[in-house]
Design a binder for these strands. Structure first.
Lengths: 311, 311
DNA sequence: AAGTTTAATAGAAAAAATCAATAATTACTA
DNA sequence: TAGTAATTATTGATTTTTTCTATTAAACTT
């Protein structure tokens, strides 16, 4: 007994004709006839009296067709569950994301996401942590992707991944001599750092424990909002900087030589999707989170063996 | 989406293991895995999270599996309809049948009937019309097969077929000269007739309009209860008799030469299944009737162009 | 009684389900 | 943390099932 066979007998009952029923089912008449016969065989009863025109269901046929209609109704409900779900997955999703995360994760998942959920319109804006929090509270965006913990009681954090910090050092730097480093090895004098307003600036300062430069003074200051710029400063000048590990993707061999990992427990940041406590668009945000997780390597999904930096 | 696929996902949900589920469904694990995947493809959603052990249904998977269980329940009900019906088709069916019908119809359908309904025990007894009516009223038998109409208000008649009477005449008889005959042609003197108590005797007398023999007298009387004996009397002696047409089946060519049909409207008898007004065992009796109809030629199912004889 | 409509049947082709063998993951354990 | 065991996915061959076209058989209509 198959659902198709039940559809066929319901059609025959409805149209009282094998030819008409076959047409409505988009199959040929022999196909439908054989399937009806097969069902009659498996059930062991005649469902239709074909001896006169129009064909009529037998007494037991009426009972079974009635039940078949019920079953087909239940099968429709399964499809409804899917379409209902898809409705929840349509509309706009406004996302605020911090600039130190955005370039390393969004481009990777954007294509897959819009492919998977064509009914969702993603509206992404790069903002600082502070702005994102404000907009979340005002309901101007649906979720934020940023570094946590925030200690904001009105917001809920859904941790997505843990990303280690690494040092990126020029050949001239003392750090270059070591295989693995500790925060104590860092000379604040030579470190390129993001400008104010970026939470990652605070995290990096935390790593370095806000130590004063041991000797001399910084000969110049350069303020940037972009991690990529920090990297280029090291590449084209001297000194060192701290990068999130996802920024290493796409480095060439020469650049990878400049990477120095911290000794365990490595300093790291927690990246979360942050939402209002009474949040809507659960499904869409869930989908976004899953899409991110799918792209990330497994090791980044656990807090273990790291020291998560405060903001 | 097939019922089998739904069975598979319910099994996986129940056992939380593809291997165990496959075993319970009596298929191999790859078979089950592929069908689950196919269902996931057609629905366009992941139903199970296989990334950890034991496998767990996804959020939407839970909804769909719940609905699948409902659907499978409805599919069980279809089978129940059949088994319920079969219960109604089991037990004893006591049938009373008149001797002038019994030998020509019962042997033909008996084999097919017990084949088709192995749970039914048919208990048949040959009786005269009078006895059958009595036993029906007393509930000692479930139905009677006899010639109608009876004019018994407490009984219901379900006409099954109409059987013409034909003349069976020896070479010596005047009737033998004619191709078709009329009742007026019959000479009561030479007619062999059933003895008292058989309704067919009355019907044959009605055909002959109880005419007195025109001349001479009967030199001997022979009383029999069997139509077959009447036939042999004609074969081995002289004279003529009246037979029901089903008695012609199995005659050889020489015997068929002795058959003379009446001019239209041919005299006929109505044979019915007779039951009590508030009758039980509907299904079994219905089945018996259908079995009889299946064996009978189409022309015997209609009253047309006949004159139904009273009893 | 001839022509039309309708369902059944036969045979071939396409599609699908199943299995055995094996690969890839994930979990467990020393 | 490496190695083993258990579990699910994949592959390719085989069998089963479904579907189609062409035709036959039966019932209905005129």
């Amino acid at each position: 007994m198959t659902i198709t066979q039940l559809e066929y007998i319901v059609a025959v009952d409805t149209y009282r004709s094998f030819v008409a029923a076959a047409e409505k089912c988009f199959v040929t008449q022999p196909t439908l006839s054989m399937q009806v016969q097969k069902l009659e065989d498996t059930l062991g009863v005649k469902l239709f009296d074909r001896s006169k025109q129009p064909v009529t269901p037998t007494e037991i046929g009426i009972e079974i067709i009635t039940q078949a209609r019920i079953l087909l109704g239940e099968s429709e409900k399964i499809k409804e569950i899917i379409t209902d779900r898809q409705k929840e997955l349509s509309g706009e999703l406004k996302v605020g994301i911090i600039p130190t995360v955005a370039p390393y994760i969004l481009p990777k998942i954007l294509h897959g996401f819009i492919e998977k959920y064509p009914q969702v319109k993603l509206i992404v804006s790069e903002q600082t942590t502070e702005t994102i929090i404000q907009q979340l509270k005002l309901g101007m965006i649906d979720c934020g992707i940023l570094s946590t913990p925030l200690n904001e009681s009105s917001l809920t954090e859904l941790p997505v991944f843990y990303e280690n910090f690494v040092a990126y050092v020029s050949k001239n730097s003392k750090l270059s001599k070591k295989k693995t480093i500790t925060p104590e090895d860092i000379d604040m004098e030579e470190i390129w750092i993001l400008n104010e307003g970026h939470c990652m600036r605070e995290q990096v300062l935390n790593i370095c424990q806000r130590r004063k430069s041991t000797q001399g003074f910084k000969h110049f200051e350069y303020n940037t909002g972009s991690v990529e710029t920090l990297k280029r400063m090291v590449d084209q000048n001297n000194g060192a900087t701290i990068l999130p590990e996802l920024a290493l993707a796409g480095l060439n061999d020469k650049q990878l030589d400049k990477v120095r990992y911290f000794k365990s427990p490595e300093p790291a940041r927690e990246v979360s999707i942050v939402i209002q406590r009474n949040f809507l668009k659960r499904r869409m945000i869930e989908a976004l989170k899953n899409e991110m997780l799918e792209f990330l390597p497994k090791r980044m999904k656990s807090k273990k063996k790291r020291e998560v930096m405060d903001i």
